[in-house]
Design a protein around this nucleic acid. Structure first.
Length: 464
RNA sequence: UCCGGUGUGGCGCAAUGGUAGCGCACUCGGCUGUUAACCGAGUUGUUAGAGGUUCGAGUCCUCUCACCGGAGCCA
């Protein structure tokens, strides 16, 4: 007999069923039976199993039916005689796959997320992490659907790369050299390490972004997107940063900055409404237990147009604010978290897109506006979260790009292939990057980014 | 990395410088178509580590470690 998932069971017809899952809790009745709450991860809800103590072999398995144990239950799906659930399984046979001794760390009560991080191998069995991972899964799925429906090509960019100055952050070096005795140039004991003897014959790193490679394929397939892991070796200790995280990076030929912003806004709205529709039960849970405003917040975002303002207008808005900021508000300086929050949370009270940033504070590949003071960069800022998307129209003019690289001390030799894209059949194009974990964080209302990825990697932490 | 905070039974938390306690979990007993069940009893601690001040330190001081929050960097 095939196992029925609890998700399907709860809408099922009744009759003979086979359920397999983990015991959340057991309540004994001296009326000669016990209640088992079983969860199999297919949904948030448990199924209640009624276990008569007259079942064959019940006495021999009774002390194995503990919180955390894994069981297989054959029985009949019937209407529940008790309150609190409409259906339950009247067991006719219970088998224990694996019992859980009393030192099972998950108790029938709330645990702190700090504690659960220490037991990352067991935390998926909690309500919260089950719900987070189902939502995360749905978001990943709908990211693909959004782009696939519009004919974008899913592109896999390399994890190991030789570019070491994309400017996105510190990089993890990848090497197979013997670190206790690396080969040295000209044999000197303290000479420079000779990376020509390394696995790839030169210095290599884990990627910080697939954007530049994405642009290559956008210059052939027109519309592509990447969705993969990225790595930053920054010593960032915040609730919004990971050393290993997943990023979505669409890159589109023939898109200008306005098209880019349109796509970003449409993208976010699509993802939010999709998850509200398809993860309704889990989202209700978040709204009840994690953040009581989350459903309202998401709905607001779906229903309202993102406020778009230039960096210059943002500065004006901040300058006329009565609030005293810790960091100076002056044209040419980067917007600080406190500035971004003030704009999205206090002034506009909704997502905002700031665009046309000063040229000096943005990357070399962003398209220079006329006048040369600003570049066509844009950031999507969400209330309570901050930056979720960063993007730009790319510089497609060969000479301008070359000059921008020189101005920012970037060796054009190293990016010869990137420059070639402007030399041979250049085209206006744009793209953006979305931090996947930040999206999951925002949608679920979870406060710490370490709790929306199965196994978080942060400074001094790579366990599991 | 900087600033601030926290570290006490398995988990969540108390404790003016003066005998380390409560809730949950666990064990035993009672009760019940139960719902984070309930009622009664019981077990569980080198108070993160090292040093110092003091008659006396969980509490004050110094250092180390870990974790949390905020900031910077960014997605």
């Amino acid at each position: 007999m095939k196992r029925t998932k609890i998700k399907d069971l709860l809408h099922g017809e009744g009759g003979e069923v086979l359920v397999k899952g983990w015991v959340k809790t057991r309540r004994d009745s001296k009326g000669g039976f016990s209640f088992l709450e079983i969860n199999d991860g297919s949904c948030l809800a448990n199924i209640q199993v009624v276990a008569e103590h007259t079942l064959p072999d019940y006495s021999s398995i009774e002390n194995q039916l503990t919180t955390g144990s894994c069981v297989s239950v054959r029985g009949k799906l019937v209407a529940s005689k008790g309150k609190g659930q409409s259906k339950e399984v009247q067991a006719t046979e219970i088998r224990v796959y694996g019992s859980a001794p009393v030192d099972y760390p998950l108790q029938k009560k709330r645990h702190s997320f700090e504690f659960l991080r220490e037991i990352a191998h067991l935390r998926p069995r909690t309500n919260t992490f089950g719900a987070v991972m189902r939502v995360r899964n749905r978001l990943a799925f709908s990211i693909h659907r959004f782009f696939q429906d519009q004919g974008f090509v899913y592109l896999n960019t390399p994890i190991v790369t030789t570019s070491d100055c994309e400017g996105a952050g510190e990089m993890f070096q990848v090497t197979t050299l013997d670190l206790s005795n690396p080969p040295r140039a000209d044999g000197a004991v303290h000479g420079k390490i000779d990376f020509s003897q390394d696995f790839f014959g030169e210095k290599t790193f884990l990627t910080v972004s697939g954007q530049l490679e994405g642009e290559i394929y956008a210059m052939a397939l027109a519309e592509i997107y990447t969705f993969g892991p990225t790595f930053r070796a920054e010593n960032s200790n915040t609730s919004r940063h990971l050393a290993e995280f997943w990023m979505v990076e669409p890159e589109m030929a023939f898109y200008d900055l306005d098209d880019n912003m349109d796509l970003a806004e449409e993208f976010i709205k699509f993802l939010l409404s999709d998850v509200m529709e398809h993860c309704a039960e889990d989202m209700e849970f978040f709204n009840k237990r994690i953040d009581t405003t989350i459903l309202e917040t998401l709905k607001n975002i779906i229903d309202n147009r993102f406020e778009r303002l230039t960096y210059t207008d943002a500065i004006h808005q901040l300058q006329k604010a009565s609030k005293i900021f810790t960091y100076p508000v002056e044209w040419g300086f980067a917007l600080q978290a406190e500035h971004e929050r003030y704009l999205s949370e206090k002034v506009f009270k909704k997502p905002i897109i700031v665009f046309n940033y000063p040229e000096q504070i943005k990357s070399f590949y962003m398209k220079l506006n006329e006048g040369g003071e600003t570049v066509r960069a844009m950031d999507v800022l969400l209330p309570n979260l901050g930056e979720i998307i960063g993007g730009s129209q790319r510089e497609e003019n060969y000479e301008v790009l070359l000059q921008r690289m020189r101005d920012k001390d970037i060796d054009p030799e190293e990016y010869w292939w990137y420059l070639d894209l402007r030399k041979f059949g250049s085209a206006p194009h744009s793209g953006f990057g979305l931090g996947f974990e930040r999206l999951v964080q925002f949608v679920t209302g979870m406060e710490n980014i370490r709790d929306v990825i199965p196994f978080p990697r942060t400074p001094k932490h790579a366990k599991f």
